[in-house]
């Protein structure tokens, strides 16, 4: 499962983000997801990728790229 493509699909299909605004450096706010929406977004990501994102990591998320890097770092740990 390609992390970035899956994140893009979730953002567009489940959170109704504008596909034209989705870039790796796009901020979560740019995509129209507010702080409460980010909680739901993280929750969905945890379900899809079978990872757990701690509060410290969650607070550092600014862009889709941040999330992709975080998921790629956590997936091997979760699988171990």
């Amino acid at each position: 499962m390609d992390t970035r493509q899956t994140l893009t699909d979730i953002a567009i299909k489940e959170f109704h983000c504008d596909a034209e605004k989705i870039r790796e450096d796009a901020t979560i706010k740019d995509l129209g997801i507010d702080s409460l929406g980010l909680l739901e977004f993280i929750f969905r990501i945890e379900e899809v990728f079978a990872v757990r994102i701690g509060n410290e990591d969650a607070e550092k998320i600014r862009t889709l790229d941040d999330i992709a890097d975080l998921v790629d770092r956590l997936r091997p740990q979760a699988a171990a």
């Binding site: 489940e14 959170f15 109704h16 997801i33 507010d34 409460l36 929406g37 739901e40």
Partner: peptide
């Protein structure tokens, strides 16, 4: 369809 509240999550 999606109501798209501007200030809210779609959820």
């Amino acid at each position: 369809g999606s109501v798209g509240m501007q200030q809210l999550s779609a959820q």
